[in-house]
């Protein structure tokens, strides 16, 4: 198993650099371009959520981004030590966020798509907390 760990700061510029790393790593797999973009999207949304929610907008906290290559899938883990997320949020049906009434655009939210997108774009997701470290693990099969 090949594995790489990136230790990044919780700021948007660093997250954008991490996105470039994820893109390059995905090109080592047999994932087609559209799926690679999906993985990038999911990782980006997950990292954004860590910055906005777990670290509450603080830009100098640490995030571990770990990518491991299995025989037929990628495992991407994101670890932070912020306030974390209620794991029940992952179990909830997030489809309401895209249940749009086109005749009433004022009711369309200006955000909240992150978890929905992660669930749509990745094949398996789990979240757990151990010794104050929160880990979101996402799998994508080739």
């Amino acid at each position: 198993m090949k594995k790489i760990s990136l230790n990044i700061e919780s700021n948007p510029d660093t997250v954008n650099l991490a996105d470039e790393c994820i893109k390059a790593l995905c090109f080592l797999t047999t994932l087609p371009p559209v799926e690679i973009n999906g993985v990038r999207q999911a990782v980006k949304e997950a990292l954004n959520n860590v910055i906005i929610h777990s670290y509450q907008g603080q830009y100098n906290c640490l995030i571990d981004l770990i990518v491991s290559f299995q025989d037929d899938h990628l495992v991407i883990s994101i670890k932070d030590s912020g306030i974390g997320m209620d794991p029940k949020l992952l179990e909830m049906d997030r489809s309401a966020v895209v249940d749009i009434d086109p005749s009433n655009i004022d009711q369309i939210p200006n955000g909240g798509w992150g978890l929905y997108l992660i669930k749509e774009l990745m094949d398996n997701i789990s979240y757990h907390t151990e010794a104050g470290i929160h880990t979101l693990e996402m799998k994508k099969f080739f």
Binding site: D19, R40, Q41, N48, N110, G111, W113, G114
Partner: peptide, 8 residues
């Protein structure tokens, strides 16, 4: 490339 912040 765009993320959900871009959508907002």
């Amino acid at each position: 490339f765009m993320d959900s912040s871009g959508l907002s």
